[in-house]
Simulated scan of single mutants.
Amino acid sequence: MADSHHVHLCRYSDEEGYTCEQECNDSGWCYWHDSNIIKDSPADKENLQEYARNGGMLRGISLKHADLAGIDLVNHHHKNGFDFSHADFYRADLTCAHLFNINLEYASLMKADLSEANLHNANIKHCNLLGIKWQNAKIKNIEIGNELIQEILAQKAQDDYDLVLALDLFEQSEEIYRDLRKHAEREGIFKLSGRFIQKELTMRRYQMKKPSFARLMSKVVDLFCGYGEEPLKVVNFSIVLILFCAILYFFTGINFEGQQHYFDASLPFTTNLNHFFSCMYYSVVTFTTLGYGDITPIGISRLIAATEAFTGSFTIALFVVVFVKKMTR
């Protein structure tokens, strides 16, 4: 009777149902998923390229300390790039690597060397980006998502009242965004660098004591102008303030040509509407500190006018600074 040979497959599987159908070694893992094997031999680079092009399971593979300098991992003539989700590239040498359109979601690039690498259109959502060497890496159109994996874990740690861990993770997030911001500036991708500086300063705010004056002021600056990156926030705030003050004037009253203009339920709708437009006009004049003098505040309206004038002069100056900063980049 002929002996039957039972092939043991790699035990890799993930939460999305993907499994590896490569034959395993004594550890129960295939060569590429075995984290105890360092892929730094001269043949590993060529073998990985061949493995990827032959449809091998790339998700979750272990490439820690791997020597992959100059490797070509572009899925040529295909719309979607190779899927390296959950892969581990810890301290891997990826200098001059071709990684166009690669999927690195939930992977780890921690302390990897990506100098001169091509990461155009790469998906690095929830990827561990701590300590990466970005020198001259090409990052146009990368997808980074709204949150780093460290941010998600930090918020979870906060919910679990592990404040020490949360603080450390927010500090890591700040470092990652700072490195990305500096690299985006060097590459001339200023829109991306503007987004990164907002996230960098937000992570710094999360490390401040709560409550504290410094944290409050940081939040105010974010709300007013997005840390200097969103001039439209200043415009929106100005419109809201002008409208809000106009409503206050409408109920507290202003003096126009010897007559008081304010809301009076006994007056016709058209008269009240005309009074409101007068209040709106006065609010605009006060906010911009033009001060024509044709309308004057009365009673408590004087306090509202003084507050609006002070806030308006500050807001206009802020808008000029933010707008010039954006335009001169």
Score class of each variant (00 low, 15 high):
H8M: 03
L63S: 00
K39V: 09
E23G: 04
H275S: 08
R329Y: 11
F277M: 10
L109H: 03
E200G: 04
N121H: 12
P268N: 07
L104E: 01
F82N: 03
L58F: 09
Q150H: 11
G312S: 03
R215Y: 02
Y282I: 01
F319C: 05
G293S: 08
M57G: 01
T271N: 12
A184E: 05
D93N: 10
Q135K: 14
G131L: 02
L232P: 04
L165Q: 14
L129C: 05
F314M: 14
V324F: 13
H86F: 11
E229V: 10
H183L: 03
P211V: 01
L109R: 01
F323Y: 15
D40Q: 10
L73D: 01
V240Q: 11
H98M: 13
V7M: 09
E229T: 15
Y177E: 09
I300S: 12
A66F: 03
L148F: 03
M217Q: 13
S278K: 08
I304K: 01
N80L: 10
I295Y: 03
L153I: 11
R195S: 12
Y31D: 07
D40M: 07
H126R: 11
N101A: 13
A92W: 00
P231W: 09
D3R: 09
Y90E: 02
C24M: 06
K64R: 15
D3N: 10
D160L: 12
I139F: 05
F100L: 10
F276A: 05
Q259C: 09
V284G: 02
R195D: 13
R186C: 10
E143R: 08
A112W: 00
E147F: 12
I295L: 07
L201G: 02
H33W: 11
K111S: 15
N136K: 12
A166L: 00
R205W: 03
R215V: 04
S13D: 13
S4T: 12
Y249M: 05
G81H: 08
E147M: 07
E151Q: 15
H77T: 12
N128C: 02
Q172D: 14
T286P: 00
S278G: 06
H183C: 05
P268E: 09
S283K: 00
I254N: 01
I37W: 05
A246P: 03
G55A: 10
H261G: 11
D3G: 06
N101S: 14
F224Q: 06
L68C: 06
F287N: 00
S283C: 04
H275P: 00
I298A: 08
S13Y: 04
K140W: 08
